[in-house]
Amino acid sequence: MPTDQQQTIAETPFPAGAFAAALAWRLFVFALLWWLLTSGQQAAALFGVPFVAAAALLSALARFRPRADAATLSPVAPLSLLRLIGFFLWHSLLGGVDVALRAFRHPLPLQPDLIDYPLRLPPGPATVLMSGLVSLMPGTLSVICEDHLRVHVLDRHGHWHQDLERLERRIGAVYRLAGF
């Protein structure tokens, strides 16, 4: 249960400051969500306080949960995030159109293949985000995400490699990773 689920005590020192920041950020997001859910009812606000707090705390704890393969954590870069969102929205539109067009054509314009893409991103949230977004981009679907990304592509002759590189760069920027 969320409230008494305690993470096992970490051996590494706990990044208190980063945690506080993450928590505050999440409190804001979840409070907003609660407000959305209850359509801004006054009476509901009070009722929601403990749950918003619990949700935020859980989420923050999940973020900072010690993991063997976790890279050092730093707060996201808001600007890069916005750029990523824009990039994503645009490309998901493209992806949708792309698939729709293929679906309507006859014969099926498909030359699918499984390809491997070596990741530069460190394992952890960044990789996961990467693999999730890959699936929403045009023509690509992530299959396995370990130290490399295995991707299913609809058109093996397409420029999927450049697309993946651009995505990876933007994600790296969001997480303020060196070299991106």
């Binding site: 992806g95 949708g96 698939v99 498909l110 699918p112 679907l141 609809l154």
Partner: peptide, 20 residues
């Protein structure tokens, strides 16, 4: 319906439906 295998169908699901 038209796509031939599980991977390609997943493409259709994840992209077109999300956009829709």
């Amino acid at each position: 319906l038209r796509f031939p295998d599980v991977y390609t169908r997943l493409h259709a699901l994840t992209k077109a439906d999300n956009l829709g």
